[in-house]
Amino acid sequence: MTRVAATAAPAGAVALMRPRRTRHGAPPREGYGFALALLAPSSALIGALLLAPLVLLLIISFKSVKLGNIALILRADFTWDNYIRVLSDPATWHSLSISGAYILGSSIMAFGLGLATALILNEKFPAQRLFRTLMLLPWAVPGITATIAFLWILQPSFGVFNFMLRTLGFAAQDINWFGDSRLALLAVIFPTVWKTYPFFTIMLLAALQTIPRELYEAASIDGANKWRQFQWITWPSLRRYAIVALVFNAMYVFREFDFIFASTKGGPQGATDTIAIRIYNLAFETFDMAAASALGVLTFVLVAICVFGFVRWQMKLEQR
């Protein structure tokens, strides 16, 4: 039918028909309205709760008003002052370095634990499923609960960790983990690692299970020991998953709030003052919403650039 129409009709008519035909070629056209209707509730929520807040954040960041209701904010004068204040404040750059150290420190440790647990869980032994459930358990623990557990374990005088250090002879006196500005970052890294390692376990275990067992059998026939097998077979297949997991974890840790807010609130002497905590404290402790918004917008730009770069890099890898 179409062919007949195409040959019979004058050239102009074919040109007119072309767009319609390509539309018909696309998956069920009658479903288009339905597809949009299904997306409507999410779109409305995301529009009202993601896009509108971001626009408002941008507006506040350019207004010379510290806090107030919407009408007051919209009426205030335009200014660059908030950005100048934030960028010229050494505390901003300090926070950026703290965020970097926090992400790096917790990712390395969480990755190590995740890899160890994943390697064990990938082997065959009795009651393996039970062990998997137990090893992933910290993932389900609320951040605030993990924090109080570690506050208690690391408590200077009665904490069990200092007791163990004393008993084993590693420490002569009590260590004030959360109160010492040299140790506080390490102290908040502990609960962070404990809650985030199961994510690495899950991701790396999924990757390990894609490696065919025959590879290992062949390698051991060739005389490769366990370490060589890891180096030549396991790690090359894990690497891509590992990088994806590390990036996702870095984003999660970058936005982390619970552990630090509940334990040190960014102190002592700014030792745990990450960007996420700084934005919060600027807005809700010092009530300088404009500076907080400016810092928020800058953070958003930074995150967007990182994510964009990561996605581009992933797509390039996939094409290869």
């Binding site: 509108a52 506040i60 904010i73 984003m251 934005i279 807005a283 918004s293 967007a304």
Partner: peptide, 15 residues
């Protein structure tokens, strides 16, 4: 998925 909650809670408070 990548926006920090502390960033969003600010405009939420106003809105």
């Amino acid at each position: 998925r990548v926006l920090p909650g502390t960033l969003l809670v600010l405009p939420y408070f106003v809105l």
